[in-house]
Amino acid sequence: MKQSIWMKSFYYIVAFLFASISLYPIILMIVSSFKPTIEIFTNPLSLPKSFHFQTYEKLLDQVPFMTYFYNSVFVSVVSVLLILITTSLAAFYIARYTYWWNNILFFVFLMGMMIPIKLGIVPLFILMKGLGLTNSLWSLILMYTAQGIPLSILILTGFFRTMPMELEEAARMDGASDLRILWNVVLPLMRPALGTVMIINFIQSWNDFFFPLIFITNEMKKTIPVGMLSLFGEYSADWGALFAGLTLSSLPMLILFFIASKQFMEGLTAGAVK
């Protein structure tokens, strides 16, 4: 494509301008976390005079961060797996079979995207209590799975519909069962869409704070966002501690992203629009 040099440099300027707007607050957060509060107030923009790790030591001393971290990992990974299993089965059914109720089923699932679920918090709490799941990570796993189902079904169904039937037909001729067809023939072709579902839901369940707030009172069962939230209240005037707390809460996700950014990006773009 031939473009004037002006056009090209205009593109670059705009692209880099907005990239820096996206990045700067996060960099500021990380940099500020290494400054004592007084320095943040007097010199908010400069690099720290010396790296000040005491705030981190103080925070890590006070909260069981590794426990929060483990809880977050466990909850997010298990709910993502459950979402992948349940929704690929359901979406396969909705997309590949033409029973008259399939559209209704699809619509019922989609409505979940619009439900203000906070409304149901009291019945939910009673339900979790009945299942003996309050103060258990499984209450969160089940909630995030349920919450992730609508959007995941939307994405997967869309993707299933774009895929040619021939391979499946052939496998069916050979007498393969539906489950085998799904597992051996269809899912391998679905990787991009599964990646999308995986990443969207992973970010979602990793960052939620509302459900643990209500379901979890045991300190050792808290996830990162809700565990760190109490710190934000306690250190409301200590900006150094606040920035360090914010950085600490975000760090695991940022690191994972830097390790696997290509997969994140590809995953998100590949399955999103079909």
Partner: peptide
């Protein structure tokens, strides 16, 4: 096939919503 999704979704999204309505 759709039962597991429907079950979890029904129990943790639809039921509490209907109860709360």
């Amino acid at each position: 096939f759709p039962i597991p999704a429907l079950f979890i979704y029904g129990l943790f999204i639809v039921y509490p919503l209907v109860a709360a309505i």
